[in-house]
């Protein structure tokens, strides 16, 4: 079996600090979402993952942009890059990089859920025939992505997976299982188009976004519940998963 082969020292470098596992749950109403998926190329599929995780074959790179207009964190936007993987036999996505536009939200997401979000300017704009998203980091364009020609889908046609966030915790380096719950009220599939992507800004190393898969746009209520499970990064999830909540 292919299991994660990332160097643990490098994997741990820059991991967000999580003071406790008692972060309050969060509910964000009416979040607009653009998600664009590519197959990952340019690297061995197991190389981005720690030994706790297994890659899917192929690995999917999932770019997700959220825009919240109201709710407990106020108005903010979030951009994430996640990679599809397995924890044991369960589908998961490893959070590789994230950015937030809106300081209170960035602080809350980092403190409670170890998003490790860096400050950035994030755009998410709906046109008649497309939805455009972009991320500017330190004044430089890091992402320009479009979901073209959206067509309605049923809410149940979309699938979402728990994400794994690396963090330095009171127990040491751990992967937090963040079980986001998304209640979708509007869903559309679109054609993905990527016109700018900085692998450096998104901490993707030598990998590249190789083959377009799909895009979708949605409106959903997002709940981030209290973290219940964490796992060690250095051993398979079968052996290293602990309940914390």
């Amino acid at each position: 079996m292919l299991t994660g082969s990332a160097d643990l020292e490098r994997f741990a470098r820059g991991a967000p600090r999580l003071a406790s596992f008692d972060g309050e749950p969060l509910t964000l109403p009416g979040v607009e979402l653009l998600q664009v998926t590519y197959e990952l190329g340019g690297c061995a599929p197991e190389s981005p993952f720690p030994p706790a995780l297994l890659p899917t074959l192929p690995v999917l790179a999932v770019l997700a942009l959220w825009r919240a207009e109201s709710g407990p964190l106020g108005r903010f936007a979030l951009a994430q890059l996640r990679l599809s993987c397995r924890s044991g036999v369960r589908p998961r996505q490893l959070l590789v990089a994230s950015f937030a536009d809106g300081e209170p939200a960035r602080a809350a997401l980092n403190e409670r859920f170890a998003f490790g979000a860096r400050a950035a300017r994030i755009r998410l704009e709906r046109f008649y025939d497309r939805v455009e998203g972009g991320v500017d980091v330190d004044g430089a364009n890091a992402l320009e992505v479009t979901g073209l020609s959206p067509l309605p889908l049923a809410a149940t046609d979309l699938q979402f997976f728990s994400s794994m966030h690396r963090a330095e915790t009171p127990k040491g380096l751990r992967l937090l299982q963040v079980d986001s719950e998304l209640h979708v009220t509007r869903a559309e599939r679109a054609q993905p188009r990527l016109t700018c992507f900085s692998a450096d800004a998104f901490q993707l190393g030598p990998a590249r976004l190789a083959h377009p898969v799909a895009a979708f746009v949605a409106v959903c209520d997002v709940t981030l519940p209290r973290v219940r499970f964490v796992c060690r990064a250095d051993v398979p999830a079968f052996a290293g998963t602990e309940r914390v909540g």
Partner: peptide
């Protein structure tokens, strides 16, 4: 068998569609 099956990427997981259901292991 279960572990090798787990690394498969089922269609619905990658591509939003009503043409494929969600498959478990």
């Amino acid at each position: 068998f279960g572990q090798s099956n787990a690394q498969l990427l089922f269609t619905r997981e990658a591509y939003p569609t009503r043409a494929y259901g969600s498959l478990a292991n």
